Amino acid sequence: MDFYLDKPLQLDLPVQSQRLKEADLGRSISNYLELIIFTRKGEHRFNADFGCAIWDLDFELIVSESLWEEKFRKSLLDSITRYEWRIQQVTVQVNISEVETFFPKRNVAEIKKKVMIYVEGKMVETGERYAFSTSLFLSPLSK
C-alpha cells in the first residue's frame, strides 16, 4: 500500500514530531488533478508540458463555447492521461455557463463564465470507479 499526503502540507508538523496528514488514494488523485488544472503549461520548472491550457484559454475571446469546451477538454484529457497514471479509461467533460451576481449596494451586476469540470475513470490499484468534479470562474465582466 502506498503512502499519500493530503494538502495543504503542514511542514511544521514533522518539526513538532507529528506526522503529516495522510490521504487515501481517491483524495490523492483529486489533489493531483487540481494541481494539473491549476498549473499553467510552462510554469513547472522541471517539466514545461505539465499543466493544462485553461490559463491560455482564459483570455481567449470565446466565439464558440462548444469549440472552447472541446479545446480545454482535450488539453485536460491529454495532461491527465500523461501525468496521472493511477487512473485509466479516463473521460473528461467540460461545461461552460454564465453566472450573474448582483451587488445591490454598488448597483452593479457581475457576469462570470463558470467552467464545470467532470473527470471519471477507474483506479488502477483497486479497480474501483473514480469520479471528480470541480468548478472555476473565468475573468469577470461587469455591467
Rank of each mutant, 00 (worst) to 15 (best):
R27W: 03
R27S: 12
S28T: 04
S28I: 05
I29N: 04
I29K: 01
N31G: 08
Y32A: 13
Y32W: 08
L33C: 07
L33W: 11
L33D: 04
E34R: 09
L35N: 12
I36A: 10
I37K: 02
R40T: 10
R40E: 15
K41I: 13
K41R: 15
K41N: 07
K41L: 10
G42E: 12
E43V: 05
F46W: 14
A48V: 08
A48M: 12
D49Q: 14
C52L: 07
A53P: 03
I54D: 00
D58V: 05
E60H: 06
L61E: 10
V63I: 08
S64C: 03
S66Y: 11
S66N: 09
E69Y: 02
E70Y: 10
K71P: 02
K71F: 03
F72T: 00
K74R: 14
S75F: 11
L76H: 01
L77T: 02
I80V: 15
E84A: 02
V90Y: 00
Q93W: 02
N95V: 06
V99M: 14
V99N: 14
E100R: 13
T101V: 08
F102C: 05
P104H: 07
K105H: 11
V108S: 04
I111V: 15
K113W: 14
K113E: 10
I117Q: 01
I117H: 02
I117L: 15
Y118N: 11
E120T: 09
G121M: 02
V124H: 06
G127M: 10
G127K: 05
R129V: 14
R129P: 07
Y130L: 06
Y130F: 15
A131Q: 14
S135T: 11
S135D: 15
L136A: 04
L136V: 05
L138Q: 12
